[in-house]
Nucleic acid binder design. Sequence first.
DNA 1: AGCACGCCGACT
DNA 2: GTCGGCGTGCTC
Length: 799
Amino acid sequence: MIAKVIVDVPAKQTDRAFDYLVPESLEDVIKPGVRVIVPFGPRKIQGFVVGFSDRSEFTGLKEIIEPMDLTPVLNEELLGLGDWLTEQTLSYKISAFQVMLPAALKAKYEKKIMLRKSIDLLPEELQFLFEKNDTIIWNEAGGHLAQLQKEATKGNVEVLYEVKERVKKKKLKHISVKVSKEELITHREQLAANAEKQKVLIDFFIENPKSIEQRELLSILDVPATTIKSLVKKGLLLEEDLEVYRDPYEDRVFEKTQPLTLTLEQEKAISPILATLEENKQKVFLLYGVTGSGKTEIYLQSIQRAIEMGKEAIVLVPEISLTPQMVKRFKGRFGNEVAVLHSGLSSGEKYDEWRKIERKEVKVVVGARSAIFAPFENLGIIIIDEEHETSYKQEDNPRYHARDVAIERANFHQCPVILGSATPSLETFARAQKGVYEQLNLPKRMNNQALPSVEIIDMREELREGNRSMFSRALIEGLKDRLEKKQQIVLFLNKRGHSSFVMCRDCGYVDNCPNCDISLTYHRFSQQMKCHYCGYESYVPSKCPECNGEHIRYFGTGTQKVEEELGKVLPEARVIRMDVDTTSRKGAHEKLLNDFQDGKADILLGTQMIAKGLDFPNITLVGVLSADTMLHLPDFRSSEKTFQLLTQVSGRAGRHELPGEVIIQTYTPEHYSVELAATQNFDHFFEREMMIRRAHQYPPYYYIALITVSHENVAYVASTTDKITKFVQSKLSKEASVLGPVASPISRIKNRYRYQCLIKYKREPDLNGTLKTILEHYQQETVSKGLQISIDVNPYILM
DNA sequence: AGCACGCCGACT
DNA sequence: GTCGGCGTGCTC
């Protein structure tokens, strides 16, 4: 039998199946989707079995060394999905497989040198290396590598390549009963009168025939471990090492919740979903409902139905660690039928959650983007909450969008997909308008709470009237008022595209990264200037390096700066600051939120991360310090993102009895995305934005694809990009427009110059073929000259 | 990606 | 004459 194996070498030349003989002894274990260790040249590497054949065009096939799994880690569906991903994103097969699995399953390689013959045969200066051990790891050899290689050709030492598992399954000793209850009873009667401890033990197992961890058993019964051993020896009990899971939510109690009675509107929205579920059909729904309109309850009850039908559910939420409240709701309803996957978990914890899914111990998975690959085999429903979130698009290879994967998987399982949002992406909303997706509306907040009143403050006006602070007079008034009333405030700082940089006031010099075409970001925490892209660090200049002027200072508003200013204006206010610095520690995020909920602070000050999921009754004022900082980014989606963010932040206020107020500070109050966010008028925004997208040939009217070329040599990059652009132009139809070559918005990263070519198209059946041709054509130059070509067929970030 | 093989410059 | 530079091509 010959196995087709995709090897763990992410390169164009090895992006195909290699043939290996399956040793007879392994024939039962080697199945498609099993990871194996195979010889590859002089090394051993990991690979995925994807199929079988009885013949091969190669002679002298090597044998598979050993399997790494006893059951496949990828089932038929996921193997097929891997092919689809490869095709869609133009990535390597191996990368597609690896992205579907927890990182813990990725192989680690170790290179070692082993002594083969007597140590005396080695030159004296090498002997010390092997004095303690006859095997050393490659790096320990230090400066003796060349000599050792010579020894290797003589056969005195051998170079070993090993594939190592990244995770150890956590195993603990468990004890269970091996015989029937009757036998236990008979045996107990035969015991000597003084065998007290054994009797205690047998009594316990007569009562509790379930398997139990030895440690726990010992703590309950006060019998020595030797007693257990002796009963094991007699064949009454069974001792085995069972896998235990690291449960990140182990010591937490989730209050059990019951399904709520749905409102009339919720009823109306859920019934088409349930119908589709029961008919076993693939269908995509847009659940379009303002914040607080009860989308989650619809998710929960749809899942409930899927579970009742014996099926499973995937729920995607944007970066879940940020919404402990969401986890609480799912765990509360479905208890330990829920697995949670998010970036805050260690790789071991992620692996354990994944194992629960694989072993069918859970029915629901709640997780971030990659949870879309959960290895369920009987999927009943897929839910993507906050559908418009850009984090659903992976920004490195394979550059997939979770929404596309969801629809593809739903197609396989013939099940519904629910895209939920208060501010859908234009793509999704346009599809719903066209009837490609079915739109379900939840137009009202639960209990008919009024939407918060929104006031837009023109900061230019403030400046004109002599207010130079970062807080408008209206906001200060609002803050003072809430402090007096003992109500809570959320202050939101839109930080994207708004890093703190250092500039000289005399000559205008900006402290830039020497390797990248971007200004350095000021980090007060470490008193350093850091580059976002390459990690370059330097100290804050005290004098201008250009003109020697002393008036060099940092610009831009960081959360720390706001906190400081706040302290000056309102010294009595208690502030909790949430940003990367204060939430990097594990669990810090949740703790800060809990403190705020418990009323330990009056003001919650933060960035993006506080925009979502906050639902505290006492918040009555939301202040947006600078609404338009990302409006001017070179990105056609910037208006959409601004609108979404402002709408979302506004939704944090007045979600319960107390009425809410929102104050938005901006320098461009007339911009439609600011204006319309203030009135929460998505439909109007949609119309406006669609006109602009149509005029500029952007999605959803056109598809786009972005080719980015990078190299250390500018001229080389420019000319290569030019050739590529011309080639693309020649291959596509008249309706497509190919823009470029132009320098990328960030024209240099890590000393590599970047040029790009943007393709806008409506229907180009052979686009992927053309793009593949480019990758193949430049393959040699990629290897020999260090050229890099990256292609993103549906980019979310155009930089 | 690694690694070996192979063909040209500066050294014992 | 040899050590070692890294260009080229292969890995079932």
